[in-house]
Simulated scan of single mutants.
Amino acid sequence: MSLHYQTNPGSRRGKWYSLFALSLITGVAFQQTATVWAQSAPAKPAPDVIIFTNGDQLTGTLERATGDSFVFKSDIVGEITVTADKIKELHTGGKFVALKNGEKVTRTSKTPGTITYQDNAISLADESSSSTVETVPVKDLSVLIDGATYAKEVTGNPGIFQDWTGGISGGVTLVESTQTGQTFTAAVNLIRLVPSVDFLPTRTRDTVNVLESYGKLTQPVIPQTTPPTPDSVAKSNIFHADAEHDKYFTPRLYGLVGLSYDHNFAQGLNLQQIYGAGIGYTVFKTPVQEFDVKADVHYERQNFVPPTASTDLIGSSFTELYHRTLPRKILFTESGTFIPAWNDPSIYSAIFEAGLQMPTYKRLSVNLGLQDNYLSNPAFGYKDNSFQFITGVTYSLK
């Protein structure tokens, strides 16, 4: 007896139909997904192109221009600066703002647009219509800024914790012998400019400075007595902190408000507080140096160690500040302040500071500094002058 199995032809045909339908649906779904991915992926912008007067071309990205100098970055040659007389044509896909010489920058005065350069002039086109809305001859160009930088530095409003630069310094000296001693110094010097780029005129400037110098020297009594006499301990503690906000009316003239606090154990000064407002002026400013002068009217409170009485004063601060970048990026800074009291002409003080910051490795620098404080009315039994020479290591924030 034999058994026969018969396959249903209709059933096999149904399987092939099912596989065909599944393949068709999968193909359509994959094609639709690929189309969505292709539509969502942003198109890579075309590179900017410089055509030189000799016919050579260079592709890359235009970063900015100052006067007749164009800064161009290419993967082949890196960042280069090209003067306008060597450029025949320049085409960019990015959006820029052109500022003319002497033009006042406001937050609503410009709209970024695409640019082309030809015949010693820059043409800016409106984004929506691509029509030329402004033509600026190179001889009249002050700065060419990309749209992102313009939005951040001109139309934006940075938060209180943004765009700070400066450095943090510290130093220590230890003595372990018959005498034991420790000296610690720490400093914080911060500055914030708005805008933060040097090719735009400054609108506001904020500065914060803190200096602390603490020392302790322990000296045993020699020869020792019976019963033993306790060791003598000498301490020094000098602290200074100040903060200032400057608002520029012109590229050189600015108004200011500021405060400062001083504690100087060497002069018997528990705390000196100053709160004032005034004006300042930038005498000259170049890429390597700057010199400022300023004056204020302020309220001053001096609190001394007993039995010296505290004083309340109305006075002024007359200050000069200078800094210069020396060869090898060595930074020299110097400042002097004279502080007379108007309600008591016999009381006045002065502060002089100077320092060198020498780069050593990446953001680390070695710093040398001196500070001389003079006070005409120190506490009873204390000297009127306090001098410090400070060395340490500085870490630059930017």
Rank of each mutant, 00 (worst) to 15 (best):
E79K: 11
E79G: 00
E79S: 10
I80L: 12
T81I: 11
T81S: 06
T81R: 08
A84D: 10
K86T: 14
I87A: 02
I87F: 07
E89W: 01
H91A: 08
T92A: 04
G93L: 13
G93S: 05
K95D: 12
K95I: 03
K95Q: 10
V97T: 00
V97W: 11
A98R: 02
A98I: 01
A98C: 05
L99W: 09
N101E: 14
N101G: 03
G102I: 11
E103I: 00
E103Q: 11
K104C: 04
K104V: 09
V105G: 04
V105A: 01
T106R: 05
R107Y: 09
T108Y: 13
T108W: 14
S109D: 14
K110P: 13
T114W: 03
I115L: 14
T116Q: 14
T116W: 13
T116P: 12
Q118W: 05
D119M: 08
N120I: 04
N120R: 08
L124C: 02
A125L: 05
D126C: 01
D126L: 00
E127V: 00
E127S: 05
S129F: 05
S129Y: 04
S131H: 13
T132S: 07
E134L: 08
T135P: 12
P137N: 11
K139M: 06
D140M: 02
D140E: 15
S142Y: 03
S142I: 04
L144V: 01
L144N: 05
D146C: 00
D146H: 01
G147Y: 05
A148D: 15
A148K: 13
A148E: 15
Y150I: 02
Y150W: 13
A151D: 15
V154W: 15
V154Q: 12
V154S: 07
T155I: 08
G156C: 07
G159W: 14
G159Q: 13
G159M: 10
G159S: 07
G159H: 12
F161K: 09
W164Y: 09
T165V: 02
T165Y: 11
G166Q: 10
I168P: 02
G171H: 04
G171R: 05
T173M: 12
L174D: 15
L174F: 10
L174G: 01
E176F: 03
T178S: 11
T180L: 07
G181N: 03
G181I: 01
Q182L: 13
T185P: 03
A186I: 06
A186F: 11
A187I: 01
A187P: 03
A187T: 07
V188C: 06
N189R: 07
L190N: 03
I191L: 08
I191F: 07
R192L: 06
R192N: 14
L193F: 06
L193A: 10
V194E: 15
V194P: 06
P195Y: 10
S196K: 06
S196A: 14
V197Q: 03
D198I: 10
D198N: 08
D198M: 03
L200F: 02
L200G: 09
T202R: 07
T202N: 10
R203M: 15
R203W: 10
R205Q: 15
D206F: 00
D206W: 05
D206V: 00
T207I: 00
T207A: 09
V208D: 03
V208E: 12
V208W: 05
V208Q: 08
